Amino acid sequence: MTTERLSPPMRAGERETLRSFLDFHRATLAMKTEGLSDDDLRRQSSPPSTLSLLGLVRHMAEVERTWFRRVINGEDIPLVWSEEGDFQAAYDASKADGAEAFEAWQTEVAHARRIEEAAASLDVTGYQPRWGEHVSLRVVMLHLIHEYARHNGHADFLREAIDGTVGA
């Protein structure tokens, strides 16, 4: 299956622009992982770093879950891969199953989209306990764009080290 990645609009309202850029970055991560086996996805391509493409997918599932469900929606739910709230646990993909990780990520993206679409405006707020602050949906969407952009840069290097594939 080939991921469809649409370019964000050059002229649109704030919310549509944020939504489009976030979806663009989600699709970029999906593209970076296409056609790889679980062993490839688990490969730690830049020793001594333990970072892998599968670890990035698992991490982004946690990020989506935390910011949209826990912060904006106020859901009292644990992380996907750590009952203790250890955000680093998702990065350890050494024994992870690719299908499980992608299903969790896609589930969290679907929840995030529903929460964002149901919000009355970008000014809706939720409490981020790690920051000790109330944050707007606008800030959450910008933070997610930042997270994906940063990790998609990592994904570029990881994918190239696996099979030489470059470009996004």
Rank of each mutant, 00 (worst) to 15 (best):
I115F: 01
V63N: 04
A112W: 08
A110H: 09
I162A: 07
L41R: 09
V63F: 03
S49P: 01
T125Y: 02
I162C: 06
R26A: 01
L54I: 10
M31F: 09
V135D: 05
D123K: 14
F24Y: 15
G85L: 02
S82T: 13
G164C: 03
K32L: 10
E62D: 06
H143T: 05
A30W: 02
P9R: 09
P47V: 01
R43L: 14
L6T: 15
Q44C: 07
T28F: 10
A96Q: 05
E4I: 11
L56Y: 07
A89F: 01
L36Y: 04
P129F: 00
D156A: 02
G13T: 01
G164L: 00
F68T: 05
F102Q: 11
D92I: 04
Q128S: 14
A27T: 06
A93G: 12
W105N: 09
N152A: 00
M141V: 04
L6I: 13
A149W: 02
R150C: 05
W67E: 06
I145G: 06
A118G: 08
R15F: 00
S37I: 06
R159D: 00
E34S: 06
G74C: 12
N152D: 02
A89P: 01
G85A: 03
E16L: 08
Y91M: 15
R58T: 09
V139M: 13
I145S: 00
F68E: 00
S7R: 15
N73A: 15
E84Y: 07
I162V: 11
T165G: 05
G35L: 03
E160M: 06
R150E: 02
I72V: 03
G13M: 05
Y91G: 15
V57Y: 08
W67I: 08
E116H: 13
H146L: 13
R159F: 01
H143A: 07
P78N: 06
V135F: 02
V63Y: 01
F68D: 03
L22T: 07
E103F: 08
D163F: 09
R70W: 06
L53Y: 00
E34W: 01
E75W: 02
